[in-house]
């Protein structure tokens, strides 16, 4: 057994590209998931009973299914009804869809955490429901739900590793690929672990910094 990091430097370009794919699938999926989650939460608040039920079922089904299985369903199962996506696109779509239900639950709890009286006050002043959601509920709940959102983001960062199974050329796929080709598992896996640890640490630090910043404007 030897330890030789030259295998990393020799493949620096490929690894850098893989890193970018990881970042892209992670962030694009998360942003889309956040938007979809907010939409679901808003529809559950304002939509009628049948719509609420339908969304509830959707949420439970997605939450009950492993991410890998959702990935298989969309990437391999999609073509059987005309949904042909490239691996990276499928990855982004799956991360977005998978996270949307978790984000929806986070948003829903956030909406519920803003006292009803504040909405009644706004209603009596003639503010519409959307205006209240946008101007009163969202800014306050963002502070409350920020820790949960950051936590979800770190979970999603790790989920991108699963995309390697459907051949997305992200960090895990590329580094293990190099490893198997050159039998340098220790170096490649070590770099892989460190890369994820760094990403997660940076995310949670940024989250804590953001929490302090937005937290102060409420307590001033």
């Amino acid at each position: 057994m030897t330890f030789d990091l030259s295998i990393i430097t020799a493949n620096a370009d490929a690894i850098w590209n893989a890193f970018l794919v990881t970042i892209y699938t992670w962030l694009a999926g998360s942003v889309l998931g956040l938007i979809a989650g907010l939409l679901i939460a808003a529809l559950m608040l304002f939509g009628g009973r049948p719509l609420q039920r339908l969304l509830r079922v959707f949420i439970e089904l997605v939450r009950g299914t492993p991410f890998l299985v959702i990935l298989f369903l969309v990437y391999y199962g999609g073509p059987s009804f005309g949904l042909r996506l490239g691996a990276i696109t499928a990855g982004v779509v799956c991360i977005a869809g998978y996270s949307s239900v978790y984000f929806a639950e986070i948003f829903r709890s956030g909406f519920a955490a803003v006292p009803r009286g504040q909405l009644e006050a706004g209603e009596c002043l003639g503010l519409g429901r959307l205006q209240l959601m946008w101007r009163v509920q969202l800014p306050q709940m963002l502070v409350l739900i920020l820790p949960s959102i950051i936590n979800m983001l770190t979970i999603l960062c790790k989920e991108t590793a699963v995309l390697s199974i459907i051949t997305v050329p992200e960090l895990t796929a590329v580094l293990t690929g190099i490893g198997t080709r050159t039998f340098t598992f220790i170096e490649t896996l070590l770099v892989l672990c460190i890369a994820y640890l760094l990403l997660i640490e940076i995310t949670s630090r940024a989250g804590r910094w953001l929490e302090r910043r937005v937290g102060t404007y409420l307590q001033r």
């Binding site: 006292p115 009286g117 504040q118 009644e120 006050a121 706004g122 009163v136 306050q140 502070v143 409420l218």
Partner: peptide, 9 residues
């Protein structure tokens, strides 16, 4: 209102 219901942000 009794609880003021100001918007804290």
């Amino acid at each position: 209102f009794q609880q003021f219901n100001l918007w804290p942000h």
